[in-house]
Design a protein around this nucleic acid. Sequence first.
DNA 1: CGAGCCCACTTAAGCGCTTAAGTTGGCATG
DNA 2: CATGCCAACTTAAGCGCTTAAGTGGGCTCG
Lengths: 347, 347
Amino acid sequence: MLEPDGSTPRRATISDIAQRAGVSTSAVSYALNDKPGVSPRTREHILAIASELEFAPAAAARMLSQGRTDTVGLILRRDPRFLANESFFMELIAGLEIGLAEQRRGLLLQLAPDRAAESSMYRQWKAAQRVDAVLLVDFERDDPRVELVRRIGLPAVAIGDPSLTGGLTTAWTDDATGIRNAVRHLHGLGHRSVARVAGGPHFAHVHIRDEAFAAECARLELRHRIVHGDFGVTLAERHTHELLDDAESGYTAIVYDSGLTAVTGLKTARARGVHVPLDLSIIGWDDSLLTTVTDPPISVMSYDVVEYGDAAARLLHGLLGGTLPAAHLAGTPTLHERGTTGPVRSA
Amino acid sequence: MLEPDGSTPRRATISDIAQRAGVSTSAVSYALNDKPGVSPRTREHILAIASELEFAPAAAARMLSQGRTDTVGLILRRDPRFLANESFFMELIAGLEIGLAEQRRGLLLQLAPDRAAESSMYRQWKAAQRVDAVLLVDFERDDPRVELVRRIGLPAVAIGDPSLTGGLTTAWTDDATGIRNAVRHLHGLGHRSVARVAGGPHFAHVHIRDEAFAAECARLELRHRIVHGDFGVTLAERHTHELLDDAESGYTAIVYDSGLTAVTGLKTARARGVHVPLDLSIIGWDDSLLTTVTDPPISVMSYDVVEYGDAAARLLHGLLGGTLPAAHLAGTPTLHERGTTGPVRSA
DNA sequence: CGAGCCCACTTAAGCGCTTAAGTTGGCATG
DNA sequence: CATGCCAACTTAAGCGCTTAAGTGGGCTCG
């Protein structure tokens, strides 16, 4: 493909095709886009030449004249150093890619250090028409992005609970039902005093799990308690100690809000000589290698995140196709029982 | 920002600015791009109007007339389901983003199911001028992508060992020196019989580590052996058993090629009643949560992957700026000693 | 004091597509 | 056999920028 002089050849344009085929560029355009206006014979001829030249329409030219980019944006507002700790994002991205690939759309990825940077990036993308739509993750309560994308007219698909996405097209997982099932399961095993080590309460999903957890415990008349941390190791450890110190309450099960905190809880309990699961049952959240390599492996509430991403991509396709915004349930976390849950040791 | 009728306002173009400022569009263009041709007074005036209108140049128009997209592409040829297992990629992406953000470039991310799909995506990107350059990861020996990007004239930065990237601009980490140091460290601890549980031998970095490992062991007159797997749990377990079964060789240390395999090795040894690190020292590769949550935490060879990505982004900037291709050392894996390495138990 | 020069602009062309609005020539129709 | 119509095209305009090539007026300088 190199020219005699060693330079890269000029890429083919529709004009080149037109010239070779002896037609106008518009005929070529019609043929390539499968639109009426050319005879089957001519169309085939044009298509043949196009493929011979390995033609692909210049993305920029298409964008400019069509006003669409076939690209969607995703901004992750996370510390780059900790991003990799959450396999959730990588799985979500994987799922998104699967869905987007089918739609022949690309994914423009960006990290933002803070909320201001994130917002200005959305504005920027909108103003520069860099993306056709965006995906919103990591919802918080009263998330300002809902209002923002609406105001600037940037199509968006939210990945989070519908109660917080303000009517945007939403892909969600039913965490409330999930945690209710977790509580019920523990209740069934004989646990009567359970705790929850939660993430930051400003996160929407944390709040939702809080409410459902408390409600279900109350319904089943379980003694219960929730402590809020930040998904980090330090607080998870401290909170686990706190709960285990509380002999009066005698918690026999703890539900953690992530895989990492659950692992931390397991180690902490172990270090105190508390046997898991005989003395204490532990349930984590979200499946990952982390929770499977411990000894014993940790029982977790989880759902298929890759599929979740795929579902979001489909919703996005619908949205851009004109479907009206709606929430779409993409899964309910299910208990994957492994080695850290069991019946209460008979007193 | 909504019009009275509820529709989104038309975004501002340079014509709008030109009109308001009472100048031509070219004057606006010169002003916005900081080029000569407008007086400071006019420039300021134009800039003021632009910011008032929240103007951002249409990316597509820019691309079309400039022939550049300010976007770089990254294709990951990995099974979406397993992608998240390697925190490496997420960290690398994080690093890339840091570097790219400074250059005001975006990252177009794509997953590919196989090599054919990957190759055709590069061609596609090149033909459609979707990206200015690409980043190449996961190098294999005789990697066909080196030839491909050269032939189609797609600027590329390779992330891998220079011996395999065929003269492309390359960011690399010195795995050979890394593993030599690991071997030396073990030797210093008194180990005289060491093994290596490696990943798939078609991977470039695996091969490089193999060679350096063998050479260093030979130099230090250590009994040694390498077994090749696939970075997966099943083979890692089998191989660990195999090595520990080999009483004659009496391996007292095993170096694994990843975090996951090291964790697997630790579990396997434990299950056999082999004490780590008293009976067996274990070294993993690449830092991740996985290796820190085990008990004991695993000693690993690692380097700063985020920085690695950042370095790659910088190289890319240079490449697009006309710097000649060169290899750039971005780090040497260093031993992070934690709980799985120790002196040989005196016999 | 006129020639020439340069600064600060404008005009116009072009990037590679899409698409609305012509323009044919062939055919059926009354 | 003139009329009209439709399929199969072409022409031309436009998307929103960049930039090479003008243009005119104020200035310097001999």
